[in-house]
């Protein structure tokens, strides 16, 4: 063929690795790409066993792949997504990629020379870019997942995610017969505070309040922003007495120290409703929220800056107001 002269230069300048072994897995050919990346000269390694020249190959796996190519005379493949690389090679993005080695897409092809001898050709394509994009995508998805759970202003959990966790914890508590309590609390006279100090003042109180509350909680508690100035805390493995204790500490942490905003001191307080889970069934978490809400309402009605626990008799009140 008149185009024969093309093959050599193209093969040598190809930006992919080309490696050929015979049926005994002895090296027959390596193109420049592979020689340069692996610092191996073809003249020095020709005729040697592939596994001696590259001694950290996944040998058993690669033997099986090559055997299937030779026996079935059909191609075999390997993707970086399942096996990051076959031959450890440096890549050409040392500064911008977090991975140390070139990610590789590999194709193993059956070859036959004019004499009928069989070979396997290993084509290695550099997939480092795809690998890097994939890593960026994953870290972005993780951040997105986090921001999907968090309330932007206060960094407490947002209502949707918090309610999901409440539901799960209620189911868990029911299954393992463990106590669970819920606190709902509300910043007292928040509207007035906003009017007096502006919305930025209100915001800074919410942020400071959240930080103080978080410092009092365990890792296993779920703290979320339920509404504008209303927050909820799921206290796992905690009975009503323990919940009231935590609530009292929160109340004091808020009322004892005023929040400083633009060199003004803003005194604040919270009203807290507490309830322990006693109900069975699918809607137990909704009932629990309702009970803590009644207790919170009573804390407000009784003069604010206090903790009130839900007591059984008030169920009737709940039913009455719902019917009304």
């Amino acid at each position: 063929m008149s185009e024969d002269w093309l093959t050599g230069p193209v093969l040598e300048q190809l930006n992919s690795g080309v490696l050929v072994v015979d049926e005994q897995f002895q090296l027959v050919y390596l193109n420049s790409f592979l020689q340069r990346h692996s610092c191996v000269q073809l003249s020095e390694v020709k005729g040697k066993s592939l596994f001696q020249v590259f001694n950290d190959l996944p040998e058993a796996w690669l033997r099986r792949k090559f055997a299937s190519v030779l026996e079935l005379q059909s191609p075999s493949f390997s993707s970086w997504e399942q096996r990051q690389y076959i031959i450890k090679l440096p890549h050409l993005r040392p500064a911008t990629s977090s991975s140390q080695y070139m990610a590789q897409n590999c194709t193993m092809l059956p070859l036959k020379d004019p004499g009928g001898r069989l070979y396997v050709c290993l084509l290695i394509e550099d997939a480092t870019d795809a690998f890097v994009y994939q890593q960026h995508l994953q870290s972005t998805l993780q951040k997105l997942e986090l921001s999907n759970r968090i309330d932007g202003l206060t960094q407490a959990l947002n209502r949707r995610y918090w309610e999901e966790q409440l539901k799960l914890e209620v189911q868990r508590a029911q299954r393992y017969k463990q106590p669970l309590s819920l606190l709902l609390f509300d910043l007292d006279k928040f509207k007035q505070l906003n009017d007096q100090y502006g919305h930025l003042g209100g915001d800074s109180v919410l942020i400071e309040l959240t930080a103080r509350v978080r410092a009092l909680l365990r890792d296993t508690d779920w703290f979320g922003r339920y509404g504008g100035e209303e927050f909820g805390i799921v206290l796992t493995n905690t009975g009503l007495a323990g919940a009231i204790e935590v609530a009292e500490r929160i109340r004091l942490a808020v009322s004892n120290t005023a929040v400083t905003f633009h060199e003004q001191s803003i005194p604040t307080s919270v009203s807290i409703g507490a309830a322990q889970l006693y109900i069975e069934g699918d809607r137990a978490h909704e009932v629990l929220i309702g009970q803590a809400d009644i207790a919170l309402y009573n804390a407000k009605r009784e003069g604010r800056n206090r903790v009130v626990a839900f007591s059984e008799g008030e169920t009737e009140f709940l039913l009455r107001t719902q019917q009304a």
Partner: peptide, 17 residues
């Protein structure tokens, strides 16, 4: 020795090709 995905792609590639 091999991930499940690798095994799956190998099997189907052998069958198909």
């Amino acid at each position: 020795s091999a991930s499940e995905l690798e095994m799956l792609t190998d099997i189907s590639s052998i069958l198909t090709t």
